[in-house]
């Protein structure tokens, strides 16, 4: 009985902090009417020093076009493994991309920045189209894009 209680206590201790550190986040990208085919988007995070931390999503399935997401490609070397399991279809003009994910709580109010690079066929590449600090206060506030993205919002 004592060993059972000890095991339960241990498993609770291991699991509970993980749950406490999770923050459900919704990312919403509204595309502009840019008059072109579906855009590739790379959503990734850098730390306070500007160093690449990791990718959150890749919109666009063909890796040979990832070089046009120029900042992302430069930071990752175009490593496809960075977006394995987090890749979806490209996003058309006027369309919306909405993503739900559990992010580490430590990413917020700690100097991290979310970036989105964008590119579309026979149109100009648009690195760092969105760059928004991840803060609790910034949740729900729309950030305007430059070329392909009308606005971007993250919320809890």
């Amino acid at each position: 009985m004592k060993s059972l209680i000890a095991a339960l206590a241990l498993s609770t201790a291991l699991i509970a902090p993980g749950l406490a550190l999770a923050r459900p986040v919704t990312l919403t990208v509204n595309m502009a009417q840019y008059g072109g085919p579906g855009a590739y988007l790379a959503v990734y995070v850098t730390d306070a020093s500007g160093a690449y931390v990791g990718s959150l999503w890749m919109a666009g399935g063909k890796s040979k076009y990832y070089k046009h997401l120029t900042d992302w490609a430069q930071m990752t070397g175009g490593d496809v493994a960075q977006v394995d399991g987090i890749t979806g279809a490209s996003v058309g003009a006027g369309q919306q991309l909405q993503l739900s994910m559990d992010l580490a709580d430590a990413l917020f109010d700690a100097g991290y920045t979310l970036h989105i690079d964008a590119a579309a066929e026979e149109m100009r590449d648009s690195p760092n189209e969105i760059a928004v600090p991840l803060t609790a206060a910034g949740a729900g506030q729309a950030v305007r894009g430059r070329r392909y993205i009308a606005d971007f919002t993250y919320g809890f």
């Binding site: 923050r23 919704t26 990791g54 399991g85 993503l99 739900s100 994910m101 559990d102 992010l103 580490a104």
Partner: peptide, 15 residues
């Protein structure tokens, strides 16, 4: 990817 961004290995979902 195990990049430390997703807690408990949960995957993002396009909703």
């Amino acid at each position: 990817p195990n990049n430390g961004l997703f807690t408990d290995g949960t995957a993002p979902v396009q909703s």
